[in-house]
């Protein structure tokens, strides 16, 4: 199956199996490995990317749903750590093992796109789908609040 879509600002065409998911297509066909596999069932959020600006779990997003739409991955947010969230993530020294952090940042980016000054409760509600096993949650909240303050 051939799918054409916009990936991080560029039009791409990719040939996959008909039941391929966005996650493995990004990782194994398009070489963007910043998006991670964690559970395969949209339960952990490590694979979170943006589809037309909305946070989605790429592990359960079929390629058929992506046709002619826009996908943004962590690599598309910025590759030089210039995005305000990336700066805040470094400033607060958020990541530990780092494996979930692409998903955390993409989820946070979608949150701030829709609500530039979220309350603590809104942050918790929006971020609750992305698990961090190392336990960086307090710093994630701080980094989002720091970013929102500077927006």
């Amino acid at each position: 199956m051939k799918t054409t879509f916009n990936l991080n600002g560029k039009t791409v065409q990719v040939e996959t199996l008909s039941d391929a998911t966005l996650l493995w297509t990004l990782r194994d066909h398009l070489g963007l490995t910043g998006t991670k596999y964690g559970c395969g069932e949209a339960l952990c959020g490590a694979c979170t990317v943006h589809l037309d600006g909305m946070a989605v779990r790429s592990c359960t997003t079929p390629m058929s749903m992506v046709t002619n739409r826009s996908v943004t991955t962590i690599e598309g947010l910025s590759n030089d750590n210039s995005h305000p969230l990336q700066k805040a993530w470094i400033e607060e020294q958020v990541p530990q093992c780092g494996y979930c952090q692409s998903g955390q940042i993409m989820q946070a980016a979608a949150l701030l796109q829709n609500n530039s000054h979220p309350t603590r409760e809104q942050i918790l509600a929006q971020m609750n789908g992305v698990i961090c096993r190392c336990g960086t949650y307090t710093r994630i909240v701080r980094a989002i609040e720091r970013t929102a303050q500077n927006l």
């Binding site: 490995t33 750590n81 470094i90 958020v94 990541p95 940042i105």
Partner: peptide, 21 residues
């Protein structure tokens, strides 16, 4: 001292074994 592994862990460039192609 800022941890040296963190910049690569906020832009997806840090390499885990699962990322090796």
């Amino acid at each position: 001292i800022p941890r040296c592994d963190i910049p690569g862990k906020v832009n997806g460039s840090a390499i885990f074994a699962i990322d090796i192609q």
